[in-house]
Design a protein around this nucleic acid. Structure first.
Lengths: 148, 148
DNA sequence: GCAGACATTTAGCGTCAGGCGAAACATTAG
DNA sequence: CTAATGTTTCGCCTGACGCTAAATGTCTGC
C-alpha cells in the first residue's frame, strides 16, 4: 500500500474511534461530574496513579507549589482515605505518598469511562470479530511496549 | 461458542485494552495536569461540550447549586473566553451558555488523550490489521448507535 | 392590561482550599 | 560535629464557591 493510502486508513481508524468514544460518552454520565475533589487533589491522585509512590518533594516539583502547600493537599486526601503516607526506608526525612486502593479506583473510573457500556457493545460482536479485536489490541500493546 | 467462553473472550479484550491505555498514559503527560481550571469550571465545560448550549437553570440543576453560584462560575469561564452567553430567542429571561471554540478544544484535549501517540502505534500495524480494526470499530459504532 | 410567577444578576456574608514565608524538628551528608 | 535537607506547623492572605435576599426584566394566564 502507498504511504498516502496507509495514512488515510490510519486517519479513518482514529476518526472512527473518536466518533465511537463520543457516542459512548454522550450516552452515560461522565464520572467527572460526580467527583467531589478539587483540581489540585485530583492532580495529586493522577500523579500518584502513574508513579505509584512519590515523596512530598516530588509532588512539590510536579505541582510547582511549596512543600507546605503539598502537606495541606495530601492531608486532605488522606482524610478522605484516598492516599496514605509512609516512611522512605532509605531516608527517614522523606514521606512517601501513595494512593490507596480507593484512590486508584477513583482514577480508574475517570480513565476507563464507559467500560461497562463497552462490555455490552462487545457482547454484540461475533466471535470472530472479538478474536480479531483481541489480536489487534495485543499487537498494539506489544508495539507500545517496544517503544519503551 | 459457549456463553462462558464468550464472556472470557470479552473480558480478555477489555483487559488488553485497559493495559494498552495504561501503557499509553504512562508514556506522556496527562493534559489534566496542566489544566488551570477549578473543578466546577471544568464540570460546566464538560456539560456544555455534551449539550452544546444550556440555560443557567440547566446548569443549576446539573451542578446542584443556586443560580447565583452558576452566575459566578459562568462569569469566570467567560472571563477566560471559554464560554459565551447569548439570549434564548424563545424566552428573553433565559441566558443560554455555550462553549467557545477554545472551550471545546480544551475538553477535547482531555477526552482524546494519546491520540497522536495512538497514531504512531497504528502506523506500526500491517495494512490488514488496520483494515480489521477499522471494520471492528465501525461495527461497534453501529451497535452503539442502535442502542440509542 | 395586569398581577403573579419566573430567570437571572447583584450585593453582602461566610467557609474552605490553596498559597506563601518563616520557624521548628528530625534526619542525613560531609 | 556542623551545615544542609525534607517535612510539618503556624499565621496570614487570596480567590472561588456557596448561600439568601433583593432588584430587574420577561413571561404567563386570567
Amino acid at each position: 500500500m502507498l504511504d498516502g493510502e496507509k495514512d488515510e486508513l490510519i486517519a479513518r481508524v482514529l476518526t472512527a474511534q473518536y466518533r465511537l468514544e463520543r457516542l459512548v460518552a454522550s450516552s452515560h454520565a461522565n464520572p467527572l461530574l460526580s467527583l467531589h475533589l478539587t483540581m489540585q487533589q485530583l492532580k495529586v491522585l493522577v500523579i500518584l496513579f502513574r508513579e505509584d509512590a512519590c515523596s512530598s518533594q516530588d509532588l512539590t516539583r510536579a505541582l510547582g507549589v511549596s512543600s507546605a502547600t503539598v502537606t495541606g493537599i495530601v492531608d486532605r486526601l488522606a482524610a478522605q482515605d484516598l492516599v496514605a503516607r509512609r516512611e522512605d526506608p532509605h531516608d527517614r526525612r522523606v514521606r512517601l505518598v501513595e494512593p490507596t486502593e480507593a484512590g486508584r479506583a477513583l482514577v480508574r473510573t475517570l480513565q476507563e469511562q464507559g467500560s461497562q457500556h463497552m462490555r455490552a457493545l462487545l457482547a454484540r460482536l461475533t466471535d470472530d470479530e472479538l478474536r480479531d479485536l483481541e489480536r489487534i489490541v495485543n499487537r498494539l500493546h506489544e508495539v507500545a511496549q517496544q517503544d519503551g
